[in-house]
Every structure is written in structure tokens, then in C-alpha cells.
Write a protein that binds this DNA or RNA. Structure first.
Length: 422
DNA sequence: TCTGGGGTCCTAGGACCC
DNA sequence: TCTGGGGTCCTAGGACCC
């Protein structure tokens, strides 16, 4: 039996979320900016039509946006996360096997749906999700995940497809491969596209015609898997449960450049607390952590500074009480006066399941005490918000906090947002 | 003045061991 | 032509994804 996958992708997801609660934005150009209101990370179709590029720095297009009356939003991940859960719940009704691939994309296993009219089934999903959630989607169906991605892309692009494309007929697959540039394949980025062009390989079809050894030589085994999938041979399985993360990173740019160690300490303490909470959420402990400290990358190279410091822990931990002081200690070693710093962060690594933690022979055993305290903290923060309980060293965060000047209300998760919808 | 924040996997090369 | 051979572990760097 051959496999069958659908990829359901939300159109302009963050932009659509903002619009879902504000119908007056229908048909208007709208963009969502990254953290710190830095660059464009989502655009409505109308904004795309104005020529606003993905990743464009906000300051470069400010004039254009003002002139054209573009509605600008700071990113509101609380809202997007909640909308994403709503979409996923609808999709789960259409398959027993669902992979939540990202905040706005899911793969559906349709392996046992051969008897149904696929076109009709996909079209039903396409209609149902926006009706239930306000978020428009596109649906691509094919025999491998990579081809389903490709079908999804064409479903969005082609007027005739109108949001739904089922790609199972070999003739249709070949035509689709010929119509797709090599750099638009899932798993082939800009670097490889450039390299392949030097060999005269421009379309997905061209790539499928290469020998396995050629592909492996230039694109490693990862690229070979992609090519086999394009040829219709499934190599990438559905991931039903999210894999346990092997690293967890929490870092943010500062709202404005910082020169004082004490301000940066505040930021790093806050990031470390968030990072430790993420660790506990996946029930892991870290064996090591790395602290990153850097200036802006967009200034005179003589004024830039980028350094990191990795610290091995005596025994794996997820306790803030251990991590915060050690993180700050590492930061003080990294810090050089005289630079204008833009970002700091922590990455925890060497993660092991919390249940398998071995106690070091040389450290006093604070584990039980720490665990109890962390449990209490997690409970209180869940109930009262993650900033409800802070350490003194975190300060008030005024100096380093993100710029978010155009934040929409958290319509779905906060009282003031709910009232506004009413 | 102003340019995001997460992640993954693979490979090559060096250190070190027997 | 060939400085021995083979294994593991670690890190840095490069590619990719959203």
C-alpha cells in the first residue's frame, strides 16, 4: 500500500490571526513585525502586492507603509499559539495521525483514505478551517511529505487549484516538478540552489534526473532523501509526537543597546528563568549551558564583540537556583566594558530525562528541595503569569525589554482582549 | 537610531586511546 | 608514493526549516 499525505498550511498565518478578530482589516495591507519590531515576518496578500519583502527591516519600509496605509502589528505569540491550537483541533478530526509540523502547518496521514474522493475530502478541510477559526488555509495532497509540500505550494499559487491540489497522477507529478524551481523544494535552500545552478539544475524535475551518487556527493544524505521523496519514494515519516529537544535556547535582542553589566545581568537572569521553565516542561535536565553575549552585527566591525562561554554542570539540573548564579558568573567573564551590547541568551545542552539524573558525589544534595520549590514556582506562574514571581537580579526589565509598539490585544487568552471582542 | 528567535541534522577534522 | 590502523568523542561550521 502506498502512503498518502496532506499538508495543510495556514495562509499568511500571523497576518490572518490579526485579521480574524478585526474584520475591518479585510482586504487591507497588513504586516506583522518580529520581536523588537525589527523586521517583517508576515504579510497579508495586499502587503505582498505592495512589494514588501519577507524579512525587510521595518525602518527601511516605514515611509512606504505610511504612504500606503499599511496596518502594522508587533508579534503577539500568545494569540498565534492559541489560534494554532484551534486550527489543529479541527484538523485532528480528519485523520487519526497528525503531525503538527510548525505553528502554521500540519501533515495529515491519509494512508487509508484511498477509497474516498480525495479532492472532495481536501476541499472540505479547506472550507471548514476558515469557517471555524477565521484562518484561511491551503491543502496539498501527495504520496510523500516533500511532494505534499510541493502540492501545497502550487495549491496556493494556481488560480485554478484555488487552495487545493491533489497530486497523485504520475503525469501531474512530473508537470508539477517541471513547474517548481529547485530552490522552492522543501529541504533545498538558497545555498544549494545556487550550487545546483552551476550544474545546470534549475527545476525540481532536473534534480530528480541526477544520479544518487551525484546528489549524495553535493547535498549529503539529507539531500538524497529529498530527491527520493520527489521521485515518489517515501523516506520521511510522520512524527506523531514532538521529539524531545536536545537543546533549548532562550535569547532576545534588547529594546536598545546596553553598556552596563548590571542591565545585561537583569536580562540574562530573566532568560535563564524562562529557559529553566522550558527545561522542566519537557521534563529534562541539562548537563551544560552556553551563554551568548553580542553587539549588533550591523555596525562597524571594530565595534562588534561576539563571545560565548560553555559551562559543564556538576550534575544535570533544571533548577533556576543553580542555573541563574552560574549563568551570571559566566556572563561577567564574557563582559568587556566599552561595547554597546544588543543581545544575550542561554542555551542549555546535554539534556537528559529528569528521571535519570545521577547525583554528583561532590555536591550537597539540594535536589529534592529545589524540585519542590520549582514545582511551586511553576504552579504560581501558570496561575498568575510568568512575571508574577521574579528574582531581585531580574530587576524591573525596563531597560532591556523588547519594543512592541503595535501589540494587538490577546483576544483569546486575556480578559481585556475578550472584553474588546464583546 | 532602527535588521528575530528559535530549532535540526550532517560532515570534517582534531584529540586521544589502544 | 604513502608517513600504521581503527575506534570514539567533541567541536566548529555549514546546510536546512519555520
Amino acid at each position: 500500500m502506498t502512503s498518502l499525505f496532506a499538508l495543510v498550511d495556514c495562509n499568511n498565518f500571523y497576518a490572518s490571526c490579526e485579521r480574524a478578530f478585526n474584520p475591518t482589516l479585510e482586504g487591507k495591507p497588513l504586516v506583522v513585525l518580529s520581536n523588537n519590531d525589527g523586521c517583517v515576518i508576515a504579510r497579508s496578500n495586499e502587503a505582498k502586492a505592495l512589494g514588501i519583502q519577507m524579512g525587510a527591516p521595518a525602518f527601511e519600509i516605514r515611509d512606504l507603509m505610511e504612504r500606503e496605509g499599511v496596518h502594522v502589528f508587533s508579534s503577539n505569540y500568545e494569540l498565534y499559539g492559541d489560534m494554532s491550537r484551534r486550527v489543529t483541533m479541527i484538523l485532528a478530526e480528519y485523520t487519526p495521525n497528525l503531525e503538527i509540523y510548525s505553528i502554521d502547518e500540519s501533515f495529515l496521514d491519509l494512508g487509508n483514505f484511498r477509497h474516498v474522493n480525495l479532492e472532495q475530502h481536501a476541499r472540505e478541510i479547506w472550507e471548514r478551517v476558515p469557517r471555524a477559526t477565521g484562518i484561511p488555509v491551503a491543502v496539498g495532497v501527495s504520496v510523500t511529505k516533500t511532494l505534499a509540500k510541493l502540492a501545497n505550494r502550487l495549491a496556493k499559487k494556481s488560480k485554478k487549484a484555488n487552495g487545493v491540489l491533489v497530486l497523485t497522477d504520475p503525469m501531474h507529478i512530473e508537470a508539477a516538478l517541471k513547474a517548481t524551481e529547485v530552490g522552492d523544494i522543501w529541504g533545498v535552500g538558497r545555498r544549494y540552489a545556487k550550487k545546483l545552478a552551476q550544474f545546470g539544475i534549475y527545476t525540481a524535475y532536473d534534480l530528480t534526473q541526477q544520479t544518487d551518487s551525484f546528489v549524495k556527493k553535493h547535498m549529503t544524505v539529507v539531500g538524497l532523501r529529498t530527491v527520493r521523496e520527489l521521485r515518489g519514494e517515501p523516506c520521511i515519516e510522520l512524527e506523531l509526537a514532538p521529539p524531545t529537544k536536545q537543546n533549548i535556547c532562550t535569547s532576545r535582542s534588547f529594546g536598545e543597546p546596553l553598556t552596563q553589566l548590571s542591565d545585561i545581568e537583569e536580562a540574562l537572569a530573566a532568560h535563564t528563568v524562562r529557559c529553566a521553565a522550558k527545561l522542566r516542561k519537557q521534563q529534562s535536565c541539562a548537563n551544560a549551558f552556553t551563554i551568548i553575549l553580542e553587539t549588533s552585527r550591523f555596525i562597524d566591525p571594530r565595534q562588534t564583540y561576539l563571545n560565548s562561554r560553555t559551562v559543564q554542570l556538576e550534575s544535570p539540573t533544571a533548577s533556576e537556583l543553580v542555573l541563574v548564579p552560574k549563568a551570571l558568573e559566566a556572563l561577567r567573564i564574557l563582559f568587556r566594558p566599552g561595547f554597546r551590547y544588543k543581545r544575550t541568551g542561554i542555551l542549555v545542552s546535554g539534556l537528559v530525562p529528569a528521571t535519570q539524573v545521577q547525583q554528583s558525589l561532590f555536591e550537597p544534595d539540594h535536589r529534592q528541595r529545589d524540585q519542590d520549590l520549582m514545582q511551586t514556582l511553576d504552579f504560581l506562574r501558570k496561575r498568575f503569569g510568568h512575571t508574577a514571581l521574579r528574582y531581585g537580579v531580574q530587576g524591573t526589565g525596563k531597560k532591556w525589554q523588547l519594543k512592541s509598539e503595535n501589540l494587538s490585544p490577546c483576544y483569546t487568552t486575556r480578559l481585556e482582549g475578550l472584553l474588546k471582542v464583546w
